[in-house]
């Protein structure tokens, strides 16, 4: 059984794993998501990459929450999940529509906003 927060105390639970460790992981994940978003051309994968970035942000928030012993960080992750779910629903519906139109998921297909 995991020790509870109260019993573990701070910073004993983290031992020598500091906040910086988590933040680095979070940053690296975010960066990978960003690179994916920039390089991949499949719309679905691009959305997956945004989810990856959400994950990274969530990880950072939870780490901060633990660091500060404040639950609001975790509450924010709930909202992130909510928004991610909403975004996934809308975005995927749009992707389906777009796919119906062009029979392709290439993001470069849509350039109507060109200046």
């Amino acid at each position: 059984m995991m020790t509870t927060l109260a019993q573990a105390g701070f910073p004993a639970a983290m031992h020598q794993i500091t906040l910086a460790h988590y933040l680095f992981i979070s940053g690296a994940m975010f960066m990978l998501g960003l690179i994916g978003f920039l390089t991949r051309r499949n719309l679905i994968i691009m959305f997956l990459c945004t989810e990856l970035m959400f994950q990274a942000a969530g990880l950072a928030l939870v780490a901060f929450s633990r660091f500060h012993m404040n639950m609001t960080g975790q509450s924010f992750v709930i909202f992130i999940v909510t928004v991610a779910a909403a975004e996934a629903a809308m975005a995927l519906a749009l992707v389906v529509l777009l796919f119906r139109k062009r029979e392709s998921l290439d993001a470069a297909e849509w350039q109507e906003m060109k200046g």
């Binding site: 920039l38 993001a107 906003m113 200046g115």
Partner: peptide, 14 residues
């Protein structure tokens, strides 16, 4: 500066 607005999603993200 118009060419910078390619209309491509990636351009803006980058």
């Amino acid at each position: 500066v118009r060419p910078t607005q390619s209309g491509e999603l990636h351009g803006y993200a980058a």
